[in-house]
């Protein structure tokens, strides 16, 4: 027995929306999905007319849908934005090659200019080379830190005003839970913010237009629109801790779909009580990137790689920053601590 669309009452419904419980036909779903993203953009004032907006594009479902919808909305509502695609090549053989091919096709399909920046040109290290040195244990730390900065550096080269990423509602809820589990108050405080401030030096403002879009709807939007995206698992072991948080969120969603919005709502309305020590944002004394330490995480990780002490950036070794800056040699004891690679 087909169910009718609860909006137009004419066509057969194709999905039940997790956020609202409404059953919608394809046409009404496309419209609702796009309009909600438009509302998010307008009410949070994510963009200004005339701006150049870089879309962080991985070739995956989220960034593909983001690029497609932003192009549609930019035309439908005349935002007056110049959109471009920005991709990062981490240098992971057999993983990134294929997804970058997808981004190249998206460039043609959506007629948006594409720039690819690589870890190799920015840092002198591919992820393949990093994994060779550090093993599979902590490589996600390197990749995550480097990607964030790579996107910024690429955006600066292109004179981009804002970067937007495909983070969806499920991702944000998952991050809230992870920060609770880690007791990371500073990140917990800022992870639900839709747009980072534009006044910080050395960093380009970032925003998440899909912050309130459910993963289920993103995937079904891509499926029904027949958008071309790439899905695979990274060959270098998934981030296990995040995996647990993800499974937890998905299990909650299966029981009560609104749980995802509720977690985001909780995160947005948390306030940190007075007296809790928060990191002060400054700039890295070596590269000028935003950092709460004298050296940014990326520079410390890179220093560790170049000195053959890969654990330098893993865990807390702030006390060594002065020595690194002064290019002093580390003691044997310090070196041994940072060398150990566990497999």
């Amino acid at each position: 027995m087909p169910i009718q669309c609860s909006s137009c009452a004419k066509n057969r419904a194709v999905l039940r929306r997790p956020k609202t419980g409404h059953s919608l036909c394809k046409h009404c779903f496309f419209w609702a999905f796009e309009e909600e993203i438009h509302q998010t953009i307008v009410s949070a004032r994510l963009f200004n007319r005339g701006e150049t907006v870089g879309i962080g594009a991985s070739g995956g479902k989220d960034s593909t849908v983001l690029a497609y919808v932003l192009k549609v909305l930019n035309e439908r509502y005349d935002y007056g934005l110049k959109l471009l695609l920005l991709s990062v090549d981490e240098g992971i053989t057999g993983y990134r090659n294929d997804s970058l091919e997808t981004v190249r096709r998206n460039q043609q399909q959506y007629d948006l200019p594409l720039t690819i920046v690589s870890y190799e040109e920015l840092y002198g290290w591919t992820m393949d080379a990093i994994v060779k040195q550090v093993g599979l244990r902590n490589n996600c730390t390197f990749c995550g830190v480097f990607r964030r900065q790579a996107l910024d550096r690429g955006a600066m080269m292109l004179n981009v005003d804002k970067i937007c990423t495909g983070h969806n509602a499920d991702d944000v809820a998952e991050t809230v839970i992870m920060n609770v589990l880690r007791g990371d108050i500073a990140r917990l405080h800022r992870c639900t913010v839709i747009s980072t401030a534009s006044d910080g030096e050395g960093a380009i403002p970032r925003c998440k237009p899909l912050k309130y879009a459910y993963e289920k709807e993103i995937v079904l939007y891509a499926y029904f629109k027949k958008l071309d995206y790439f899905s695979t698992e990274c060959v270098y072991s998934p981030n296990a801790y995040r995996g647990h948080a993800r499974t937890f969120i998905k299990d909650l969603e299966a029981v009560r779909p609104s749980a995802i919005m509720d977690i985001i709502h909780s995160g947005e309305n948390l306030s940190v009580k007075e007296g809790v020590k928060m990191p002060v944002q400054g700039t890295c004394s070596r590269c000028g990137y935003i950092s709460s330490q004298s050296l940014c995480k990326s520079c410390v990780l890179l220093e560790g790689l170049n000195r053959g002490l890969p654990k330098l950036g893993i865990g807390k070794h702030h006390r060594l920053h002065d020595k690194i800056l002064a290019q002093q040699a580390l003691t044997e004891k310090e070196q041994n601590k940072l060398k150990a690679i566990e497999f």
Partner: peptide, 26 residues
């Protein structure tokens, strides 16, 4: 399938069933 009775749906000849993972990254 949430509109079709999920596990209780009775299959018909020539049905088309699609399984899409949302758990993979890009």
């Amino acid at each position: 399938w949430e509109l079709m009775g999920e596990l209780e749906y009775q299959l018909q000849d020539q049905d088309n069933i699609v399984f899409i993972s949302t758990l993979h990254g890009g």
